[in-house]
C-alpha cells in the first residue's frame, strides 16, 4: 500500500518540530514518535509532510473551516491524520467531497498527540477515498498500553453518527467542555522548559505572561479565558459540571 500521508502538526515525529500550528512550539523538537507514526513507519506508507488547520485545532470551536484548507491538506497526499475534537473538519468534508473517519473514542492511541481536549481528542483519517482511509485506520488503530484510556478488547471502528441528547444546546455544551479542558492543556506552555520564551522580561511573572501572550493566537487566548471562567469556583456548578452531566444524560 504505497500511500502518502500528511500528519497534522499536533502529531509528534521524533527529531522533527511538532508545532501544533502555534508560534509557541515553532522550535519544539519532539523526542518521541507518536504510536500512529511508529505503526505507519512499519509499513510502506510514506509520511510526506505536516499541516495544521489551526492553532492546536481550537479555531474549529469558533468558526467553520473553509474547503480550501482541506484541499490544500490533501494536495500531495492520499490521507491526513488529524485530531478533529471540534468536529469542524468532519463538517467541512461535506461540501468538498472528502471523507473524515472519526474513530470511536479510545480505539486509536493518543501517545505522541499534542493534547487539546483530552476527553474528545482522537486521531482520525481525512481522505478522498473511503477504502484507503479505512485501510490506514486499521493500521494505526488498536490497543497501546502507553495510552491509559484504551480498551484492549476493542477494535478500530468508526464512530456511529449518533444524535447527541440536548442537540439545541450542543454547541454551548461543547464550547464549555472544550474551553475548560483546553485551558488545562495550555498551562504547560510557559516558556520555561521548551518552546517560545519572550526576549525581554523583568521578572518571572512577566516572563510567563509575555511568552504566552506573544506566542498564542487570538482563538487560543479566547478559549483559555473562557475555560478559566467556566471552571472558576463560582461558576463550576453552573457551567462545566452541568455541561458534563448534560452531555451524557437525557
Amino acid at each position: 500500500m504505497p500511500f502518502n500521508v500528511i500528519l497534522e502538526e499536533s502529531i509528534m515525529q521524533k527529531d522533527i518540530p511538532a508545532t501544533a500550528g502555534s508560534k509557541m512550539l515553532e522550535s519544539f523538537i519532539s523526542p518521541i514518535d507518536a504510536t500512529v507514526v511508529t505503526r505507519l513507519k512499519a509499513t510502506d506508507i510514506k509520511i510526506v509532510g505536516r499541516y495544521a488547520f489551526s492553532e492546536f485545532g481550537i479555531s474549529g470551536l469558533f468558526r467553520e473551516y473553509q474547503e480550501k484548507k482541506l484541499t490544500k491538506a490533501l494536495e500531495n497526499a492520499d490521507v491526513m491524520l488529524c485530531n478533529d475534537f471540534t468536529g469542524a473538519i468532519a463538517k467541512a468534508t461535506k461540501s468538498c467531497g472528502m471523507f473524515y473517519i472519526q474513530p470511536k473514542y479510545g480505539t486509536v492511541s493518543r501517545y505522541g498527540l499534542i493534547p487539546s481536549v483530552c476527553s474528545l481528542d482522537q486521531i482520525g483519517v481525512l481522505c478522498k477515498d473511503l477504502d484507503v482511509g479505512q485501510k490506514v485506520l486499521e493500521i494505526i488503530s488498536g490497543y497501546d498500553p502507553k495510552d491509559g484510556i484504551m480498551n484492549p478488547d476493542e477494535n478500530a471502528q468508526a464512530r456511529d453518527e449518533e444524535k447527541p441528547p440536548h442537540s439545541d444546546i450542543q454547541k454551548q455544551i461543547k464550547q464549555i467542555i472544550c474551553c475548560a479542558e483546553f485551558m488545562g492543556n495550555m498551562s504547560r506552555y510557559d516558556g520555561v522548559k521548551y518552546g517560545y520564551r519572550a526576549k525581554d522580561y523583568k521578572d518571572l511573572t512577566e516572563m510567563y505572561t509575555k511568552s504566552r501572550t506573544e506566542a498564542f493566537g487570538e482563538d487560543v487566548k479566547l478559549a483559555i479565558m473562557i475555560g478559566a471562567m467556566v471552571l472558576s469556583s463560582e461558576n463550576y456548578d453552573r457551567y462545566y459540571d452541568k455541561a458534563r452531566k448534560l452531555i451524557i444524560n437525557d
Binding site: 501544533a20 523526542p31 501517545y111 499534542i114 493534547p115 502507553k146 495510552d147 521548551y194
Partner: peptide, 14 residues
Amino acid sequence: CPACMGMPGMPAIL
C-alpha cells in the same frame, strides 16, 4: 521524562 517535565504527548498512567 517528557511526561513529568511538562512536555505534551505522553499520557499519564497510574
